[in-house]
Design a protein around this nucleic acid. Structure first.
Lengths: 337, 337
DNA sequence: ATGAAAGCGCTAACAT
DNA sequence: ATGTTAGCGCTTTCAT
């Protein structure tokens, strides 16, 4: 492949005429090295462009100064959280390593555990796991979860947002615009966030004295693949909804696409509200009205919490819940008449 | 911290009553293990929840099945590229490790080289480096650069987009709207992309027979911190520009903020065009007209090119240049009168 | 078919 | 102040 090998600590030691131990001491600022020797070693290090291998270093020492961020995939949700984490990490002395556990292997199954196993104990001092479905209690390192699908009960420090309240806001917004037949494209069954969003939807209807109608609910499953058919069913009903609240932005955007396919115009013929406020929601056509979760803030909070955990200044049952707010764009409008 | 230690190959070997060598063979599907032994080992592995440490494995073997993505920071530009890389990686058999080299240490100086040194030769089989300023020629592993600041000449396989043409489109758009005093908020001096964007700006003016006026050019440096003052100068000129083309979206958005501070309304009093089309540009107020670089596509292309490189099917002087296009939103308008 | 042992690059205890 | 050495978890010859 490429010719030149990495420069190792042995190369430096040889070139400087000292032992590897001495080089190690210089690199790590340990005492017991003469100033002149240290200078010579540093010169050689610069000349050779040496920097120690993360891998070898972390195999030996307990502390690496690296925080791992474990995600299933690099998609709009996780990358927003990543931006917040990155901003919080600047100047903290920690480096960030983001690991996508789902990309390599076919199965989504258990990426959290596999990833944690592969990296922990060695490479990273602590981990932030984004939207895990399951997490082992004994990862061996401090772990903070962001928006875990099992809810904050899992025994881990957790950052999430107020899903119930957000869904309530979304539904209330549609009801206030005069909509009575409000469809709901639900999230993935069994996931806590999905359940809370459905509760908020029902509460929003109840507030307005609208009876819940199971025919107006379909499972979108948070994913493009599952959302298309569900949205199509919803919009093909004899008495179709005049508004749809989708459990996340991705499926809301799909709903708008399906509507277009069916000859329905948004927002004239159909109002749509999403959830998350990923940047893509603003890029949609029309720009999507949605519920904001402060994803970057969640990332930043996760970083700070993990740091506190690492220094023993936080409890493992810490739970930070952030607000959700309505962001009005152009996909919703008052029901005429 | 946490009680339980990682499960190591030695634990598995002991529990299964075999040597670590045998366990290793089973894990890696090597020949020379009796079926019954292999079964027993696999059972123990499941029971103990063992999976091999990436670190230890990669220290020993040359191939890890991991691709590194090296970025300075996790910001809108790099995370878009990341999304594209992630999408391309699904099903490829490679895992993705994104490394932010700037966050830990204070200095931005040489993050590319430091990161590459820390990870290469061991952890990752190949690397995609996003917007590097300098890259060592002898990284020891295949490297693809995305939008390198030195241009494609650096001797590395490179993915970038047509900066010159994009800037021409931006300027032409403003000129066609009737603007004659078109300001330019330049990128970082010395960077190839910045130079090409300035060339495009000048060409756009020349096309329309407008003389280039150095007073209408300020250095925004691609960064928020440097852009504010430059934009303020530009907009405070006696004969202020009626339109500004900023060399990237971030500084274009800052320009709109500065305009608001000065009591100028966009687009009524000032038209603004950006460059990049990061998702944030659509979230701006008003939504920003900008030049799109297909960032996700650039990421996907980078991944494919790296794969080709790894299997020896691509030349190291490959250069892929993608198109740039105008995305019209609400920050530009025809000059009245 | 299985295991013993060397060694990847590094750190840290222990000599000298 | 400096060097020698063991060993982190793993893979890979090389014996047996």
């Amino acid at each position: 492949m490429n010719a030149r090998r990495r420069v190792t600590i042995t190369d430096v030691a040889r070139a400087a005429g000292v032992s590897v131990a001495t080089v190690s001491k210089v690199v790590n600022g340990r005492y017991g090295v003469a100033a002149t020797t240290a200078d010579r070693v540093r010169t050689v290090i610069d000349e050779l462009g040496y920097s120690s291998s993360l891998v070898a270093r972390s195999l030996r020492s307990t502390h690496t100064g690296v925080i791992g961020i474990l995600v299933a995939e690099f998609e709009p949700f996780s990358t927003e959280v990543l931006k917040g984490l990155g901003a919080a990490a600047v100047g903290s002395g920690y480096e960030l390593l983001a690991w996508s556990g789902y990309s390599g292997h076919g199965g989504q199954e258990g990426w959290e555990r596999r990833s944690l196993n592969q990296l922990s104990g060695t490479l990273i001092d602590g981990a932030v796991v984004v939207t895990p479905t399951v997490v082992d209690a004994d990862a061996g390192i401090p772990v903070v979860t962001v928006d875990p699908h099992t809810g904050p009960s899992a025994g881990f420090p957790t950052i999430d947002s107020d899903n119930y309240h957000g869904a309530l806001l979304a539904t209330r917004h549609l009801v206030e615009l005069g909509h009575r037949r409000v469809g709901f494209l639900a999230g993935r069954p069994g996931l806590q966030s999905a359940e809370e969003r459905e509760r908020g939807y029902r509460a929003g209807l109840a507030e307005a004295g609208i009876e819940f109608d199971p025919k107006l609910v379909r499972v979108g499953g948070y994913r493009t693949e599952t959302a298309d058919g569900a949205a199509r069913e919803l919009l093909s009903l004899d008495e179709r909804p005049t508004a749809v609240f989708a459990a996340n932005d991705i499926t809301a955007i799909r709903t708008m696409n399906v509507a277009a396919d069916l000859g329905l115009k948004v927002p004239e013929d159909l109002s749509v509200v999403g959830f998350d406020n990923v940047p893509e929601s603003a890029l949609a056509n029309p720009p999507l009205t949605t519920i904001e979760q402060p994803l970057q803030e969640m990332g930043a909070d996760a970083f700070r919490l993990l740091l506190a955990l690492l220094s023993g200044q936080a409890e493992t049952d810490t739970h930070i819940r952030l607000r959700t707010t309505l962001v009005e764009r152009q996909s919703t409008r008052a029901l005429p008449g």
